[in-house]
Design a protein around this nucleic acid. Structure first.
Lengths: 196, 196, 196, 196
DNA sequence: CATGAATGAGAATTCATTCAT
DNA sequence: AATGAATGAATTCTCATTCAT
């Protein structure tokens, strides 16, 4: 089991990083939020970058695990796709802070950002694999599965994030919105927008 | 006509901001890139924030204008949607740096980020209006046009951005990819992923 | 006659310098207050220091002239002392901004501050001369006339300045206070504080 | 007991502030004079303003304490007044740098300057109270005790300050001057300048 | 393991002054 | 005479990181 303090620091760090982004986040604030001395953070993490990376790595790992778990409940690619959409939206709603960081800290030239995109790619590959399975099995008809996976990732992610900001502070409405958002993505995937 | 120096500073600022993001960008670098003294930037812009905001405002304004121009060439909502997808992807490809900033600097609690999301919302409304026109005319069948607009925005944006990073440094391949990406988004919009 | 613009700049400069003190005063603000371009100030004055010095020199010159004029109306040293006290207090009340600068910018190691103290000394000598005349004529009994002159200068100056700040924004009360202040200084000079 | 470094910084700050005044004083110089890194100052004080305010507050606090201690040795208002004059002049001579700052940084619109005047007022009230006690006991005859207190403060302060500048660099003469100055102020208070 | 005082390399911003027009 | 855009040296303040205790 991970050292207790590490967990406390982790909790605090998500809050602070999500509040302000990587650059604006201050180690002082993280220390204060965690209720430990600044030196203690440095005892457990080599640097701010390392703390952040560890954090994001765990975060996106959780997303991937959660998605995998939901997918594995089904064997049919179409049902798996449904499950993935559900999982993605739920996870983003339950991890709003991580969701913000996921998009805002993914683009850039820093090594940490590159590492980060590698993990996102891993998640997109997960989607892509479902698509490829569906094509294989004849259930799905997709020309560019990789691009399609990334488009699906973008549609679902931005949709939730957009909603998070427009419903800022209205926790209740968010839950109701979850259905609307799932419906929207499903409609996009499984129906043509065209009437008939 | 805008003052010449302001334009030079603008050009330099896009480069530098896109290279490093708002926080990492240094006014020194912008000044150097622009070939002016640091003070000159401050003579024209009150602060780094203001420079950035002016920049992003113009950038997203260009995106909106470009999209509107493309849309206005058609009167049929479905053709307009096609045009919008085309415009969006082309604009992102031709303004890669802006595209990165568009997504990475939109989420946060800073006033500038809020202002920025307001402008993005304006663009999403543009999409939403096409969808509503299509519903009205009976051409489209969409339950939640606002959510759908934001999903479309997300799909197209992340798709291009993802491609920008995976093709980093391969300018030629990017152009070819444009078609693949447009096809992907069109497929998502106008076909079901399901085989028949 | 002095160039018209110089006068305009002078007027503006007193306001701004008094508002913020030498260091905090900005040439930009003076230019704006004067309604001229910043370059124009530099056309007429070599530097901020020179503008300030010219200003203070004129200001203290006015004080000295005003005091001399009032003194010269009397030939008796005691009446002259009365006249001086009256003039001093009146001048400080009518030139509040100059009064503030007079005390706050007089102490320091800068050449301008030294020049400034030289002029104040000139004023103190004026008081001292009245005292010496009074000693000579047997009207006054003072052991250290120079020190006494400087003490009188301090008493009257600080008294008015203290009142200026305590009555900030109450123009009317200031006028009434003038009498109280004159009485106070006269009492200090011509009576013992001791009862009988 | 205050942290050792804080004291060192305090010592250095008085020197530097008095040398150049608030605005011209550089944090770099204070740091160098204190033999600490610039960051260390900011670790202990939020800003230059706060450091200065803390400094002046302590300084004028010392003056008040010193005066009170001297006054409390006597019960007769007249003797107390003598003691106060003695204390004031001694304190100004022994704290020349503070004395300069006391007068030059008291006038202005900055919050710190306002705070500062509040403390000076506290000192003037101390004088005023002695005067009121004397009136009460019938020892003194004063019409406007508050104004008189402020005039006394001004007379003694400016007298010493004027002397400090005229004897710059002649430490020995200063001590001798102390008597002359005390005599002058006492004469002002307890005798009429008029001969008989 | 934990602490928090101390550090110092930056970075944003300011503003007197210059000078081409 | 007057202008105001441009400059760049100077200065405050920040904050990740270190290290002695």
């Amino acid at each position: 089991m991970r050292h207790e303090k590490v967990d406390i620091i982790f909790q605090a760090a998500v809050q602070v990083f999500a509040e302000s982004g990587f650059d604006q986040a201050k180690m002082d604030d993280i220390a204060q939020a965690a209720g430990v001395a600044k030196g203690t953070i440095y005892y457990h993490f080599k640097s701010k970058e390392e703390l952040f990376s560890a954090l994001m790595d765990e975060g996106i790992g959780n997303l991937i695990d959660y998605a995998k778990r939901n997918i594995s409940l089904h064997s049919n690619p179409i049902e798996q796709l449904h499950a993935l959409v559900h999982a993605h939206i739920q996870f983003f709603i339950e991890n709003k802070k991580l969701a913000k960081l996921l998009l805002s800290e993914a683009f850039g030239t820093k090594e940490r950002q590159h590492q980060f995109r590698v993990r996102i790619l891993e998640y997109i590959r997960l989607i892509e694999n479902i698509l490829r399975d569906g094509i294989q099995s004849g259930d799905l008809s997709i020309v560019h599965p990789h691009e399609m996976a990334s488009a699906i990732f973008g549609a679902a992610s931005i949709l939730v994030l957009h909603k998070i900001y427009s419903l800022e502070g209205q926790e209740k409405e968010m839950e109701e919105s979850a259905n609307v958002m799932e419906e929207t993505v499903r409609h996009l995937l499984f129906n043509s927008l065209m009437n008939k």
